[in-house]
Simulated assay, not measured.
Amino acid sequence: MKTRATQLILFKILMSITVYSNAQTVSDYENLSLNADSYWEGSDLSQGFNSGNAFFTNTFDLTWGGYWSEGFAYSNMKDSTTAGFTNLYSARTASGYYNSANYAIGMDAAVIHLKNAAKGGIVNGMYVTNSTYAAISMLQGDAIGKQFGSIYGANGDIDGTQGKDWYKLSITGFYNNAPINDTVDFYLADYRFSNASQNYIVTTWEWVNLESLGNLDSLIFHLSSSDNGDWGMNTPGYFCVDDFTTMDSPLLVENHFKKNLFAFYPNPAGDQLNVSFTSSNYTFISIRDLAGRELFKENIENTDKYKINVSGYPSGAYIIEVSNSDHFIERTIFIKN
């Protein structure tokens, strides 16, 4: 079995890369026409919709009067307070990312096919949040889904979770018609913290970085939860997406240690991380944990030195990443004592 030190060394070699792209396309869904406070669920049987360099698949089942049964829908609904299935097409944020109008809603096993310049290239990531339906169900409980944090299921029986509930979005994909080996996980809710004040249900738009998946032709999204019953997952299986962003070029890898375009000290770090740059062309600096969650991001234009307060970070390994307006990204690892 590899030691922790060996794992960190291997991870450092893997992550200490430079990625460069000539173009970037954002699927923001604003190209899709909707009446005010409405949605599209596929009843025109078009089997999906295009935005940016991506096709978002959809299946509309004509039985039982017709209903959205697979894939994605899109919406500009603003209802962040009404509980239940009748409010299926609303985001908990009451708008798209950065108060934009339109956003997409996905369900388990939803698929995105990349097209044009994006096909076979890198997906930078996307913004994700909960649907109103899922968020309120987890917060309050309903006839099927439990209240997260409770030791009881919706049926009133002790469910064995001890209140350590979670709701997870997992993203993987395909390249050259073969499944890739990597998955990115993002917790839409997590009640497993020893300090209950850290428990959360996502109610804001959060960036999910997907660059680690490598070159892709398509992506597939899976939902899972700690709350399950005889018929599967009890938590409403929906999530919302905005600004799905493709790099529109394959992954290009260069050796970070030959570039040395930024440096930092001390490593391991105590309360403060000092960063210096050999170029003033960088626009952003960010820190992520090893699960890819963004913990810090700041604009650093026209800056050659920067200090980051890391005193509140738990001990462990973190990814420090810098980027510029041409989507050039350099990243490496630092250790927090």
Rank of each mutant, 00 (worst) to 15 (best):
K164M: 05
I105T: 07
A110T: 03
F174V: 10
N274D: 08
T204M: 00
A109C: 00
I136A: 07
F239T: 04
W205Q: 08
N199A: 05
R293P: 00
N195C: 02
D227E: 03
G153S: 12
Y74V: 03
N324S: 09
N195G: 01
Y20E: 15
Y39K: 11
N155Y: 04
S90Q: 07
F56A: 11
S226M: 05
E298R: 15
I300D: 06
I335H: 07
R293L: 06
L114V: 04
N176W: 05
I319N: 06
G160R: 10
M15E: 14
Q24K: 14
A178T: 15
K297H: 08
M15I: 13
R4T: 12
A178L: 14
A196I: 12
T161I: 02
F85I: 11
N267T: 05
P179Y: 07
T129I: 02
S225R: 07
G270H: 12
M77I: 01
G153M: 04
A101Y: 12
S276T: 15
E298A: 14
F186N: 05
Y74C: 02
T161P: 02
G42H: 05
S150A: 14
T18M: 08
D165L: 06
T246C: 10
F328Q: 09
N102S: 07
N324E: 01
L213W: 09
Y191M: 05
G316V: 05
S95R: 06
G120L: 04
T57F: 10
R288Q: 12
M1R: 10
Y318G: 08
I201M: 07
L32Q: 12
G125P: 04
T172S: 15
L210W: 04
T161W: 05
R92P: 00
D185L: 01
D185I: 02
I122T: 13
F72P: 03
D182H: 11
G163T: 07
G106H: 04
N281E: 12
S69I: 01
G232W: 06
S21V: 01
W207G: 01
T303I: 09
S150N: 13
M77G: 01
E254A: 11
A269K: 08
W207H: 09
T332M: 04
S224H: 02
N22P: 00
F334S: 08
D304N: 15
Y238D: 04
K168L: 08
N274C: 02
A73N: 05
P250T: 13
N215P: 01
N177E: 12
L14W: 12
I112D: 05
I319V: 15
Y98M: 11
A109M: 04
Q272E: 11
W207Q: 09
N309G: 03
V202Q: 08
T3H: 11
F60E: 03
V253K: 15
T57A: 08
Y67P: 00
L273M: 09
